[in-house]
């Protein structure tokens, strides 16, 4: 549904000619309706849990992996609104796998300095945590920033850094409310961004 035929393409190129690297003259202006897709792959750094009776504690989790797909639509040359579906995994000391699947709406603001793009963004939405038989739906906030190099008007490549803040609230009696925690993680990922 994201590929609506009615939406304008970002660039109007001769279809028979391959698109070369970007030049200052070719650096595009985006407007309402221009869209982008991004695929991100990287590592997940567990930072700490907070909010428990012992305050800030190590997560006990291993370094993990993550991936995400992101779609966005420009509202103007500097602002886009989109949605991101991600997945991350980490392991506990006994080899139990923690899976986290965030589904977030994402508001981005783009700074540009040819040939680089510096989006800063805030994602907010739902995170699904799963540990063995347990599943929990929590809210999530994902502020972050990216650094892209524009290869050509369509493709950009870069790196993302995003902070995942996952408040995991319980009301009791089971799990008890004392098991509420604020999960803090850092995403570092490589990204390929396609404008269309």
């Amino acid at each position: 549904m994201f590929f609506s035929a009615g939406l304008l393409p970002a660039q109007h190129n001769d279809e028979d000619r391959p698109i070369g690297p970007a030049t200052p003259e070719a650096f595009p202006e985006y407007s309402l309706g221009d869209q982008m897709l991004a695929i991100n792959l990287g590592i997940m750094v567990p930072l700490f849990f907070a909010g428990g009776p012992d305050g800030v504690q190590r997560t006990n989790l291993s370094l993990g992996g993550l991936g995400s797909l992101e779609w966005g639509s420009f509202l103007n040359n500097n602002v886009s609104l989109g949605i991101e579906l991600g997945g991350a995994f980490m392991f506990t000391p006994n080899g139990r796998a923690l899976f986290m699947v965030p589904i977030t709406g994402k508001l981005s603001y783009f700074f540009r300095s040819y040939p680089f793009i510096f989006p800063v963004f805030l994602g907010a939405g739902l995170n699904i945590s799963r540990l063995e038989d347990q599943t929990k739906f929590d809210p999530i906030l994902k502020p972050g920033a990216s650094f892209y190099w524009s290869y050509n008007p369509e493709w950009s490549f870069g790196v993302n850094a995003a902070y995942w803040w996952v408040p995991q609230w319980y009301r009791g009696p089971e799990p008890p409310s004392g098991d509420s925690r604020y999960g803090n993680f850092l995403e570092i990922s490589l990204s390929a961004l396609y404008h269309f």
Partner: peptide, 9 residues
Amino acid sequence: GIFASIEQE
């Protein structure tokens, strides 16, 4: 709790 469980593991 999932996070609490991991924290104390």
